[in-house]
Simulated scan of single mutants.
Amino acid sequence: MSVYTAIKNIAKKRDVSIFRIEKDLKLTNGVISHWDKSMPRADSLQAVADYLGVTSSFILNESRKGAD
């Protein structure tokens, strides 16, 4: 699975939309969806992880689960 899918799944469990995350963190609209095909910048990933109450390592580990 991609980083985007991992974030989407975590956000869904916390009842928050990707749009809300982007808006609250002042990220460009749609930037998280681009993480479906590319890796995010470390500071952006950390900001999203902090927002969701997880570590960036947790997000990356979740994204690797589908790659096995």
Rank of each mutant, 00 (worst) to 15 (best):
I7T: 05
A6W: 02
G53Y: 06
V48W: 00
A6L: 05
I32T: 03
K37H: 06
A47D: 04
A67M: 10
Q46T: 03
S2L: 04
N29P: 11
D24E: 15
A11H: 03
V48Q: 08
I21K: 15
D36G: 11
F19W: 08
K65D: 07
D36Q: 14
K8H: 06
K23E: 15
R64W: 09
R14T: 01
Y4D: 01
V3A: 01
D24C: 15
A67I: 08
G30V: 12
V48Y: 03
A49M: 04
A47Q: 06
S17F: 04
M1H: 10
N29G: 00
L60Q: 00
I21Q: 12
E62D: 09
R14H: 08
V16T: 11
T55A: 06
K13Q: 13
N9K: 13
F19S: 14
I18M: 05
A6Q: 08
G66A: 14
K37T: 13
S38Y: 03
S17R: 05
A6R: 01
S56F: 00
D68H: 02
K12Y: 05
K26E: 15
L45R: 03
I59N: 06
I32C: 06
K65Q: 10
I10N: 03
L27A: 08
S57T: 12
D36T: 09
T28Q: 14
P40I: 01
F19T: 13
I59T: 08
K8L: 08
K26D: 14
W35L: 04
R20I: 11
T5M: 09
K12E: 12
K12N: 11
I7N: 02
D50Q: 12
S2C: 08
S17H: 07
L27K: 13
S56D: 13
V54H: 07
M39C: 03
L27N: 07
K13H: 02
K13L: 12
S33F: 05
D24V: 08
Y4F: 07
N29E: 14
L25A: 14
A6C: 05
E22G: 10
V48T: 09
K13V: 01
D50W: 00
V31R: 05
W35S: 02
S17C: 10
L25E: 11
I10G: 02
L52I: 07
G30D: 12
A42V: 09
S57A: 14
M39E: 09
I7E: 01
D15V: 04
K8S: 11
S57R: 10
K37M: 00
S44L: 02
K23Y: 14
L60A: 08
K13C: 00
V54F: 01
H34G: 14
N29H: 14
R14P: 00
A49Y: 04
P40W: 02
L52T: 07
L52R: 05
M39K: 10
I18W: 07
V3R: 00
A67L: 11
S17W: 00
N9S: 12
L52P: 09
V48P: 04
G66L: 04
V54M: 10
M1S: 11
G53R: 10
F19L: 11
P40C: 05
